[in-house]
């Protein structure tokens, strides 16, 4: 066991972990931040995407000890200070960008990372960026639409509802 300390959603946290403890396990099991989900074991589904020092990473493919001293952001820290949904979360609700909700935390975290580096992405850029986030429910239509909307782009021309 080794001690690890990091900042998660703005709060300093620490814990004793093994070398093999994944960041996702530390978040889910030690910190009870269960919004970070595990949907595969080959680092492809993206349900576990979190931010480490501002960059999207797969929390299931990084050891907790590698996040020593890092600023970690998870889905639980995304809402506005007053608890209301942030612009991306709100756009996902407004445009029905989620169904079962399991891939959603990773989608929102990836969308946030995308908009940070590319504030007005095209449809094609969004679709390419989401290569590492698999959704089985939505057919991606409303996820892409929600991200376009969250970036302030007009989505009224995209099919109804």
């Amino acid at each position: 066991m080794a001690k690890v300390t990091m900042t998660v959603n703005g709060k300093s946290v620490s814990g004793d972990v093994e070398g093999r403890t994944l960041l996702s396990a530390f978040l889910r099991e030690d910190l009870n931040l269960t919004g970070t989900h595990i949907g595969c074991d080959t680092s492809q589904c993206g349900a576990c995407v979190v931010h480490v020092d501002g960059e999207a990473v797969k929390a299931c493919t990084m050891f907790a000890l590698e996040a020593e001293g890092a600023e970690v952001g998870t889905i639980e820290g995304q809402a506005n200070a007053d608890g209301s949904l942030n612009a991306i979360q709100q756009a996902f609700q407004d445009h029905h960008g989620l169904q079962c909700g399991f891939c959603t935390p990773g989608m929102v975290m990836s969308a946030a990372a995308l908009l940070k580096e590319n504030p007005k992405p095209s449809e094609a850029e969004i679709r390419h960026y989401l290569e590492g986030n698999i959704c089985r429910c939505t057919g991606y239509h409303n996820i892409v639409k929600a991200i376009l909307a969250a970036s302030g782009q007009d989505v009224s021309a995209i099919a109804a509802e």
Binding site: R28, L33, T34, G35, T36, H37, I38, T74, I75, E76, Q78, A79, L85, Q89, F92, Q93, D94, H96, L98, C100, G101, F102, T104, P105, V108, E161
Partner: peptide, 21 residues
Amino acid sequence: ASSKRREDVRFLTGKGRYTDD
């Protein structure tokens, strides 16, 4: 009506409670 989904709020904030949770 295309009412917005009330369940979305918990899913979007990481507060869903799935079996593994």
